[in-house]
Simulated assay, not measured.
Amino acid sequence: MRLRVEFTTEPFDLDETPAHAVVAREVIQGAGLDAVDVGPFGNTAEGGADQVLTAVDSLLRKALASGATRVSLQVNVTGEDTP
């Protein structure tokens, strides 16, 4: 199964990127996922279910430990993995 994750972390700071946002992006960018897109108000990535779920677990733990007070995320099934 392939999944797509979309997420944001809060609180926002328009003057300087908060540590929790940097950590969350680093987790997603380092997770070996496909179609990674990071932006100031939202981030997305796609990949196999195991990879995405492992990345989401790490993202939540590390972002919260780095000061996030809220993490909004959505996970969608986008199709089946091809061997």
Rank of each mutant, 00 (worst) to 15 (best):
Asp34Asn: 14
Ala49Val: 08
Ala19Met: 09
Glu10Asn: 08
Gln51Val: 00
Ser58Leu: 12
Val27Arg: 01
Val77Asn: 04
Thr54Phe: 06
Gly47Cys: 00
Ala19Phe: 04
Asp57Asn: 06
Asp50Phe: 04
Gly67Thr: 10
Gln29Pro: 00
Ala35Val: 15
Phe7Gln: 04
Leu59Cys: 08
Ala65Asp: 15
Leu33Tyr: 01
Asp34Glu: 15
Gly32Arg: 07
Asn76Val: 04
Leu59Asp: 03
Leu73Trp: 06
Arg70Ile: 06
Val71Lys: 02
Asp37Glu: 15
Ser58Asn: 10
Pro40Ile: 12
Ala45Ile: 10
Thr82Leu: 12
Val38Asp: 13
Glu26Ala: 13
Ala68Trp: 05
Asp81Met: 12
Pro83Gln: 01
Gln29Phe: 06
Thr54Lys: 08
Glu6His: 05
Gly79Ser: 01
Pro83Met: 07
Asp57Gln: 03
Asp81Ser: 13
Glu46Trp: 11
Asn76Arg: 09
Val22Ile: 15
Glu10Val: 04
Leu59Ala: 05
Ile28Cys: 08
Val23Ile: 14
Arg70Val: 10
Arg2Trp: 05
Asp13Arg: 00
Arg25Ala: 14
Ala19Tyr: 03
Val27Ser: 07
Val23Phe: 10
Phe7Trp: 11
Gly30Trp: 04
Thr54Tyr: 03
Ala24Trp: 08
Val23Trp: 09
Leu3Glu: 02
Ser72Leu: 11
Arg61Trp: 06
Val38Glu: 13
Leu73Arg: 00
Val5Ala: 00
Glu80Ile: 07
Glu26Cys: 13
Leu14Pro: 08
Asp34Trp: 11
Val27Tyr: 04
Pro11Asn: 10
Ala19Asn: 02
Arg4Ala: 11
Asn76Phe: 07
Val77Tyr: 00
Val75Asp: 02
Thr54Asn: 05
Val71Gln: 02
Phe12Ala: 06
Ala55Met: 00
Pro83His: 07
Ser72Ala: 12
Ala19Glu: 13
Ser66Thr: 09
Thr17Glu: 14
Gln29Ser: 12
Gln51Pro: 01
Asn43Leu: 14
Asn76Ile: 00
Leu33Gln: 07
Asp34Ile: 06
Thr78Leu: 08
Thr82Gly: 10
Thr8Arg: 03
Asn76Met: 06
Thr69Lys: 14
Ile28Val: 15
Ala21Pro: 09
Ser72Val: 11
Val27Asn: 01
Thr17Asp: 09
Pro18Thr: 02
Gly47Gln: 03
Leu53Ser: 01
Glu10Leu: 08
Leu60Asp: 06
Asp57Cys: 01
Val36Leu: 14
Glu10Met: 09
Ala68Leu: 05
Gly48Lys: 02
Gln74Phe: 00
Ser72Trp: 06
Leu3Tyr: 03
Glu26Asn: 15
Arg61Lys: 12
Gln74Lys: 10
Gly42Asn: 14
Leu59Phe: 06
Ala35Gln: 15
Pro83Ala: 11
Glu26Asp: 15
Ala24Val: 10
His20Gln: 09
Leu14Val: 15
Met1Leu: 07
Met1Thr: 00
Val27Pro: 01
Pro18Leu: 03
Asp50Ser: 13
